[in-house]
Nucleic acid binder design. Structure first.
Length: 356
DNA sequence: AAGACGGGGCA
DNA sequence: TGCCCAGTCTT
């Protein structure tokens, strides 16, 4: 059932054909040309669509483009991806964030390499890293299945169309399902997302260019940017940590991170400063674990992520005889921006030593 | 139903 | 500085 409830205006059923026509005509004339859009409408290459959809999760298209090129170059088909070591896949993903996407994509590729590509959205949904959005996107684009996507663009466009300030997931999905053009589901989904990305933007929507302006309740309200209302977000929490640089900016001792945060990436050996603990105590713990002698403080790095702010003290370390450590080429390892900043600290310091 | 999970772009 | 981005998984 569809919930056309208050407070939003609704799209009257008799307007639906005109609305669909307006958006699809706009899309056919003004839709974006993107590398993963090669091939027939509703019959795209599933691997290319899949990689693009994973890459674009919480990632803007402009940023995804470069990674897409790089990733497909490294792993041209699902078999190449399935056969690749995780470290290589993460290296191709380096800097893109949300690294679980890369780990899940590789794991799913191994399933697909063994069993073949799924043929329906339910099949896609069963793969790791594929949720409701991605399953609907791939099945509509590659198989022509009539599944409506629900992403940030769709949420914003539909919120505005109905002047619904606080749309729930259920509401958005129901509206998206009702509007979906069953004759061209893939094009419809792309059209809605293109509209959200290029015209119905979060701030300063360009209503003068919008093919749906005549249908839009938020536009009629005079303040379209007010829809949807901003989400409340958790405050960023600050964490402190200490790291050891053993080696230099080119060759250093690196550890593989295993937690949820930056899991699978390499980085300088580090310990978090616990609650009620001093950085010195964390450093002693770190040195004891690695059998390393601490040298001078090299500097401090501050790195802000969406959900946390990390203050990292970087200390030079010297391996003691008991240590079993080996430096490795930094350029070969997949590093987070945090560790890249920490290493940049030393590179700069070497420069300044020349000046001295 | 909430949190956790990266990083960059833009006003 | 704050908000957002072709979301998903875990608790």
């Amino acid at each position: 059932m569809t919930d056309f409830g208050a407070p939003g205006q609704t799209t009257a059923p008799h307007e639906l054909p005109a609305l669909r026509r307006a958006l699809l005509e706009w899309f056919d004339a003004s839709g974006r040309e993107l590398p993963w859009r090669a091939g027939p409408e509703g019959g795209r290459d599933p691997y290319r669509v899949w990689v693009a959809e994973i890459l674009l999760q919480q990632t803007q298209v402009a940023r995804g483009l470069g990674y897409y090129e790089r990733f497909l170059d490294a792993f041209p088909d699902v078999h190449a991806l399935a056969a690749a070591p995780e470290a290589e896949v993460l290296k191709a993903w380096e800097g893109c964030g949300y690294y679980a996407r890369a780990r899940n994509l590789r794991r799913a590729a191994q399933i697909v390499a063994a069993q073949g590509f799924p043929g329906s959205s339910e099949g896609w949904l069963a793969l790791p890293g594929v949720g409701p959005y991605t399953a609907a996107a791939i099945s509509s684009l590659a198989h022509g299945e009539a599944k409506a996507v629900n992403d940030g663009n769709v949420r914003r466009v539909l919120s505005r169309l109905s002047a619904q300030p606080a749309p729930t997931e259920r509401w958005v999905q129901a509206r998206a399902d009702a509007l979906l053009d069953p004759a061209r589901p893939g094009a419809w989904n792309e059209a809605l997302m293109d509209l959200g990305a290029t015209v119905c933007t979060p701030r300063a929507p360009r209503c003068g260019l919008c093919p749906l302006a005549a249908f839009c309740a938020a536009r009629a309200s005079g303040d379209p940017a007010a829809y949807p209302a901003p989400k409340v977000r958790a405050a960023v929490q600050e964490r402190r940590a200490v790291a050891l640089l053993i080696g230099d900016a080119q060759e250093a001792v690196l550890e593989r991170r295993t937690g949820r945060l930056l899991g699978g990436l390499m980085g300088l050996p580090a310990e978090e400063v616990g609650a009620g603990e001093s950085p010195r105590q964390a450093l002693e713990r770190l040195c004891a674990r690695l059998h390393v002698q601490a040298g001078p403080l090299l500097g401090q790095v501050v790195h802000t992520m969406t959900h946390r702010r990390i203050v990292l003290e970087v200390v030079r370390g010297h391996a003691l005889p008991a240590a079993r450590l080996s430096a490795q080429p930094v350029a070969k390892a997949a590093l987070s921006r945090l560790d890249q900043k920490a290493l940049a600290l030393v590179a700069q310091r070497q420069d300044s030593l020349f000046v001295l």
